[in-house]
Design a binder for these strands. Sequence first.
DNA 1: CCCATCTTGTGAACCGTTTCAGTGATGCGA
DNA 2: TCGCATCACTGAAACGGTTCACAAGATGGG
Lengths: 337, 337
Amino acid sequence: MAEYAWRMARKRATIKEVAQATGLSPAAVSYALRGLQVSEETMERVRAAAAELGYEADPIARALASGRTGMIGLLCGSLEDLWQQSLAVGISRGLREKDRYALILDAVGDPGRERVLAQQLRDQRVDGLIVQPVDPAAPFWADLCESVPVVAIGDGLPGTAGEVVFDNRSGVTLALEHLKRLGHRRIAVLTPTGARTPDRPADVHASAEADRLGLDIEVAPAPYGLTGATEVAREVLADKRHTAVFCFSDSIAYGVYAAAAERGLSVPDDVSVMGYDDHPMSGLLTPGLTTVDWNLDGIVRAAVRLMAAAADGAARRRRVVQQPTLRERGSVRRISR
Amino acid sequence: MAEYAWRMARKRATIKEVAQATGLSPAAVSYALRGLQVSEETMERVRAAAAELGYEADPIARALASGRTGMIGLLCGSLEDLWQQSLAVGISRGLREKDRYALILDAVGDPGRERVLAQQLRDQRVDGLIVQPVDPAAPFWADLCESVPVVAIGDGLPGTAGEVVFDNRSGVTLALEHLKRLGHRRIAVLTPTGARTPDRPADVHASAEADRLGLDIEVAPAPYGLTGATEVAREVLADKRHTAVFCFSDSIAYGVYAAAAERGLSVPDDVSVMGYDDHPMSGLLTPGLTTVDWNLDGIVRAAVRLMAAAADGAARRRRVVQQPTLRERGSVRRISR
DNA sequence: CCCATCTTGTGAACCGTTTCAGTGATGCGA
DNA sequence: TCGCATCACTGAAACGGTTCACAAGATGGG
């Protein structure tokens, strides 16, 4: 009970042992292994001894002493969103190419959780934080941004190291104008649950644009997960008022497809559906999901570039604005009246 | 250049300051905050002082001193696989409910990367590791399993803390018998790239079962990502020999759908497709993907339970075997000859 | 009333690095 | 030959906790 097998693992070599083996001081070894301040010759000697003993620096001790880790924290608002999953994968890959690695955490759509995880990540001494915030308006971000470089993805949170912001105004306009052009007037808008809905930029834009365009929209929150989104979509579809459903995430749109199928409704003959993201799966569905393309690759590249620069010490803070494109497939139909 | 804003963050309160504030020794404070060895009264006093000063223990220092962190590492073979993404999300949620939190890392299908990350995670002093290995046969696992409790998901790696193994034999049989029953004889099998293919249990079973059933199969490796899988699928479909494609992952099957659409081929009229996983999206496609259901929820629950028990010190190692179910949708068609 | 036992709490060592302030050599120009 | 940098390296102090061995006072049993 007291001791388990995995606690008894043989002790790792420490820097002291390497020092002893080479007859140097621990400090010298520390420098040597990082290619600092020592002669070529001792550097070689130290390397050899380290290899011999199988020594590798302990990242925890190193983090404590130096305050650096080489890791980048990636905090996702909700990994249930397939698009955020793609983002995480892309960023993970991108950072890898920069010889850094990402620690991925999932706030599961909960602003409270988001705070805890963000602080935890900072306490882990990550060199930087890439965030797609659930609640960009939360006050704790300000403190956090002061203690670690932050690259924010989305809208509403000014990151200290850079931001990749979506021009949600254009995105929403693109979507709503498209729907209007095809004759839709009464539209249900499904927005991700999580942050306080009224404050979210995308929602604000949606209301404003609907007013401007003379559209009658009704906003309802929906979770990203397929089952959860389907549930919400069921209710939305039961109320036959709307001719179209505009989802602020492709993942949510998938839920609408599922609910429509359950009820025997055809997309787009009985109800039109629009997404927001352009996740790769959206092209595979039948009909293909008409959606707003945010150029995932571009976002990933920008975020990785900004973060790598900041973590390496570049002080410049940059703001990259992503412009959306309409990706027309088959899920929105022209209606007569 | 030398100092950045985020390095100048105000210093956090340390345990010494709390000690000073309460007139106790640091040791006493340490004990008090963990509810150990001290009187109720001082405990209260310490808590108050800690709250007052906004003190929170530094996880890095704590990890260095105690060797524990409370975190669970989750190492995914490839997050490009939508099913593994779902797994990660589920486990992340499940652990949260157990008041632990997961550090997710992605080996991006690279066995070498997998080794590095696994060791990095151990060096981070995670209390446990949940792994879905790219290469279960890699020798480094043995060492790793000795230094940290490991829960392995999949097949072929005996975890020290527990395993959730898929009965791949049954799964493969289920799939191939289904295809045979519907008249298919020449079948392409798409297996995930990554580990050395010939050794992988699923592939071995596939060959054996094909022999037993008198089927003519051809195995080709394919990446999980939609674009990559589509590329491979293009070639497979160009060769019209096969009447069906059996993919060892739903994600890969999606690539086959995409390639078929490109070529104007109908699923299942021109080619039948089978998956392996039952990802939620599979039911949304047209036609629905016929696949082998591994009961994601059950796997998540089992993995979380095993890991939580092991991390809390339960010494028992358990083995949970997952039985597959055939989930028949519309992507496999009966053929005459 | 004395010895044994708990209960609380203390001091110091320790975890494994990094980093700061020196310290002898050595090289070099004058 | 005398200063003066420069180079290569060292000792010791952080970093911020945990934990071990021990001590002083309270408690209790005989």
